[in-house]
């Protein structure tokens, strides 16, 4: 994907959260957003995912601008996948029904075809045994993996992942990170927000450092992690990469 975000402005109740943010990437498979808490990563990701519309500025992927009206944005959201920090799943539905819901009700598959579609991925990620459990009966890691799978089985053009591991206990982070690594290997495109710096460095093609509502540094992972000129970014990395 080629992302081009230009002069994005977003305000909530008068406070400016994105302050003319611009970011242009090369043709990358995995873009990772890092930066301090409250810097605007989630706000940016929600705009990229078509969940919010910026107050000003625009975004395009591969040269195609994101629409601004809700109906067209909904079509866009149907073509991508988004996973939040937590509470992605619908608690009244089993894991399997969570997977089937978008396939059947959004993408028009028959229930039988939808079941066929999810069988192999459930097995590949060792989730088949848990398919009939409600979210309340799943571990945090299993919940997040089902959430990622739900975003994946509709065959999206790309995924948006907002700190998919930060609500998890350390033991469960590994299984989710392993799943994301496997997605990378199979060619899935994604934009990932994370505080796991070691993981970010390993998986990112390009990294953007978001702080104070702007992109303070962006470029290939090795460049940002090893040779970044910005003192802000170096300071942040030195505190988080211990």
């Amino acid at each position: 994907m080629l992302l081009d975000a230009r002069d994005l402005v977003q305000r909530f109740d008068g406070t400016t959260v994105l302050d003319g943010l611009s970011l242009a990437t090369g043709d990358v498979q995995a873009l990772v957003l890092i930066g301090p808490s409250g810097g605007g990563k989630t706000t940016l990701l929600r705009i990229l995912a078509g969940l919010d519309v910026p107050a000003a500025g625009g975004v395009s992927f591969d040269g195609v601008p994101l629409p601004r009206d809700e109906a067209a944005l909904r079509d866009y959201r149907r073509s991508v996948g988004t996973v939040f920090q937590a509470y992605n799943l619908f608690p009244h539905l089993s894991a399997l029904d969570n997977l089937l819901l978008p396939l059947v009700h959004v993408h028009g598959l028959s229930p039988a075809a939808a079941r066929d579609r999810v069988r192999e991925p459930l097995e590949r990620f060792q989730l088949a045994a848990h398919a009939h459990k409600r979210p309340a009966e799943l571990s945090g890691g299993q919940k997040q993996r089902i959430a990622i799978l739900r975003a994946l089985v509709v065959r999206p053009r790309r995924l948006f992942l907002d700190e998919p591991t930060s609500a998890l206990d350390p033991e469960m982070r590994g299984e989710v990170l392993a799943m994301i690594r496997e997605l990378k290997e199979t060619g899935v495109e994604f934009v990932l927000v994370t505080h796991e710096m070691a993981f970010a460095r390993r998986i990112a093609d390009e990294v953007a450092f978001v702080g104070d509502g702007r992109v303070l540094a962006a470029g290939p992972a090795a460049e940002i992690f090893d040779h970044c000129q910005s003192p802000r970014v170096r300071d942040f990395l030195s505190r988080t990469l211990i």
Binding site: A49, L51, R74, D75, R77, R78, G81, T82, F84, A86, Y87, N88, L89, F90, P91, H92, L101, P102, H105, V106, R150, A151, V154
Partner: peptide, 24 residues
Amino acid sequence: TQRDSARAIGLTPWQTLRLVILPQ
């Protein structure tokens, strides 16, 4: 977060009400 998830998978507002909000 439930409305957010529903929007993220592309449900319409009416589908969100019918499939996500009302059953809960």
